[in-house]
Design a protein around this nucleic acid. Structure first.
Lengths: 205, 205, 205, 205
DNA sequence: TATGAATGAGACTTCATTCAT
DNA sequence: GATGAATGAAGTCTCATTCAT
């Protein structure tokens, strides 16, 4: 309600709150990933975020809102990843296969470094969040279809949305599957996935 | 694969009981599919099975056992499906691609006609059941790897388990994805999946 | 909380439940009277009824339902009291003043012997229950108006409903007021109330 | 009647503060009237007063103090009303009945124009405030008894306090009852109340 | 002094599970 | 065996109150 002139150092309360929100979201992502959405408790999330349950509810009206917020956060990041791939496409340098591989690698890296992402992806399909899941994937599929239009010209236009859907869902599933494996198996699964997609799509490039 | 008849489920001695157990499992499958595992209530399942919760607990020690039992039931059916595919392979008639397509079609049909199957598949990845999921998929992957050994001789032996895993997980994911779509999109996704797998694996046949 | 299973005489479970419901209602009435509706806790009520919170919720969907049930229970009893007064009126013996006094005495006795009644009457007007309160009082006023028609013929018909309302509300308020007083003051207030009403209504009899 | 200015409310030293306190009290009266004491939230009251809860707690140690303060404010006004009636009595002009009617009308007007008053009167009997209610009504009854001594000389001295109590409680109850009614019924109830009291007390004048 | 973010006790309610009948 | 009433742990969320800024 006030502006605050940001005097000297005084950490502005808005920044403090923002940091707290981040901490809560991180904690939620972690806990959701750990035990799943339903089994996660708001109290546990608050504890892990080193706050009180009251603070949590100051920012999020209910447990579900936490998952939505995390999902949104990640959806945005994945969107940015798409932006980069699209830029690459416009630059026109890479051949189709390489592009695909680069994109998947970026996704894998993202998946690996952001532990919360897995939480979301896994819970996305968790019944409660079917609509959200569908919406997000639909958006990614739409953008993938666009890219296909540019880099897989031989793919009949009518098949584009379906192929795009299969790509998105397959990558998503394989990422989850890979992340669950221990040892070398994970990366191997990712490699096979790239092979599979590349060989499938090559004739259309 | 198993020794004892599973300590989790008491095998009923009477025909009446057996029928009741079936009814309970059907009800559980239905309810899990409808609202998800966590949101399902044992009372609700008992009610839909036209029994009392007391009876339900006579046969199943807890809610989770219900899902396990359903999963088992379906795992067996999928196993039988594998048996048939293996017989086909031994008979030696079909080319590799056709075999793959037939197998997937059988799975799709099964998925479509058994509403409970979807419930399971969807909840399989639901954290609580990660181990079960892994075990089941590992078993299917093992058998798939065997089939690959026979019908995809050019695939290096070392890659077989990984490729088998990817096949199993991809088919599983695409089945779920397809079942969620309305209209023609579902079947189209299945078709593209078959294409994808066939083109990927063709060079190894 | 388990005591003895009531040996020998097998109490039919329906009767047991019924008794439990009664106990819960009595406890609720007591607690509501003691601390008011809002401050009362369902846990406290269950404890006082010597049951578990779960049992309470087996019979009543929420806290409010408890108050409604009690209110209903009492509304019925007051209704019966009206029945008796009406019978008296039909018998035609008593003069108007005596009738009024008898009715009020009956109400006072009821009020005194049923501690929960006060709880209800007091909480009736407690915002949440305004509609209920209004409905109940409207019903009593309606019946009072009828009686007035028979025993206060000189009262213009148009005023009857209003006069009936004032009677009902006054008696109700005075009963509460009287019940709050210690010593002789309570009964004295009741006596003055009777005087007041009798002298007011005498000219119309 | 009081010694210290109530330890419950800190008297503000500045004009701005005083205005703020008034605003808070108005807001509290409004909110209490709107949703009842328990359902009212301090945050909501502060918001409606265009301040922060921090400020609210600067002046009032707790929620209850708000109701007390409002009640006090109104008790003072009702006291002033009594002063005027007493002056009237001393002046000696009006006959007893007219005096009674005038006093009630003044109360009704007050009740109507001050929405907060109703909030208080209604919550007065709300358990938490039983003592306060009793104290206030006792004070009014005391003064009413005095007036009765002067203008109802035929009423035996011993009955005076009881009669005064009944008058106070009846008027209070009827005011509330009347204020709840829609249309003409409210004023009609007030009229009947006046009739009732006048006819009751006339013989003692 | 004003602000409002933070706190946390405690309320209501659900539901898996037990056990007397 | 079957039944379903009873149990109570545990979860989500609210809101009065505090306190650092």
């Amino acid at each position: 309600m006030k502006k605050k002139p940001t005097p000297d150092r005084r950490v502005p309360s808005q920044a403090r709150s923002l940091e707290r929100v981040e901490r809560i979201l991180d904690a939620a992502a972690f806990v959701f990933a750990e035990v799943g959405f339903e089994a996660a408790t708001t109290e546990g999330i608050a504890a892990r975020a080193d706050t009180s349950i009251g603070s949590l509810y100051q920012f999020f009206p209910n447990k579900r809102a936490l998952l939505y917020a995390i999902a949104q956060r990640y959806a945005e990041r994945v969107s940015e990843l798409f932006d980069r791939v699209e830029a690459e496409v416009l630059a026109g340098g890479q051949p189709f296969g390489a592009l695909l591989r680069t994109a998947i690698d970026a996704l894998v890296a993202f998946h690996a470094e952001e532990p919360g992402f897995r939480a979301i992806v896994r819970n996305w399909s968790s019944h409660e969040f079917a609509e959200f899941d569908e919406a997000a994937n639909a958006e990614f599929a739409r953008r993938t279809a666009q890219l296909l239009g540019k880099r897989a010209p031989k793919l009949p236009k009518a098949r584009r949305p379906v192929v795009a859907s299969v790509i998105v869902e397959t990558v998503s599933a394989m990422l989850i599957s890979a992340s669950r494996r221990k040892g070398k198996l994970g990366p191997q699964i990712v490699e096979e996935t790239k092979d599979m997609l590349e060989r499938w799509l090559a004739p259309y490039a």
